[in-house]
Design a binder for these strands. Structure first.
Lengths: 110, 110
DNA sequence: ATTTTGTGTAACCGAAAGGTTTCATTTATC
DNA sequence: GATAAATGAAACCTTTCGGTTACACAAAAT
């Protein structure tokens, strides 16, 4: 089981669940009502989300309220951030490369 | 085939490939040398990355140079950004919820 | 006490993911 | 021209994924 944040947010249903829970905590059935899939399927998604820390659960009687704990998303934000230059300044990696390539093929001394 | 950016970056090998290519373009074999998996496996990862626009390829003779085109990561950055409050201010969704719950259970008028 | 409600769990499924090996093809090189 | 290099593509395999149905059980509500 890999179970890291990147894998957790890869599924659109899970991202939608995060969206719902970020607005307000919901018990499992309430979350499930927002989807066409079965309740156990939603339950599995929530399990995955809790396993990587994005969602926490608070048992209250027979109900289990799920709430968002999105600190783990910081990881993702930091990862993408290191490439921010690529979409801010339309950085042309290829162009830079082509220049270097020519030099390289010129000295070709292994 | 889903093939969106979130799914593409879910795999650690693909994130590593992005990392390599962001530094400089490489042909397929050069990329593959950085991993323990077979060359065709790397080739498949790169296909996925090109399919969602994160990597582009420039054929040059028999070689295919791959380079990073990370504008698509903006999507991811924007998605995570909407939850930034959750890790910056340690926003306590549960606490807010508990308050509301008590009120709700008090008026309980359906 | 009985019934309803909210959930977990188990068994099972088909499809997709991530890999591998093998073979074909095109482009350089000797 | 023969050979080596750089890849694509196909066939196949094992796991994981996302879902389902069926069943069990504790907590609430009647």
């Amino acid at each position: 089981m890999r179970r890291d944040v990147f894998q957790a947010i890869a599924d659109p249903t899970r991202r939608e669940i995060i969206h719902l829970l970020a607005a307000k905590p919901l018990n499992l059935n309430a979350v499930a009502e927002n989807f066409d899939i079965s309740r156990p399927a939603v339950s599995k998604h929530i399990r995955i989300l809790t396993e990587c820390g994005l969602v926490a659960i608070r048992q209250q009687g027979r109900e289990r309220f799920c709430y968002a704990e999105l600190q783990a998303l910081k990881q993702v934000a930091e990862w993408t951030d290191q490439y921010r230059a690529f979409w801010n300044k339309k950085l042309d990696a290829l162009g830079a490369f082509l220049g270097k390539e020519e030099q390289a093929s010129r000295k070709k001394k292994k």
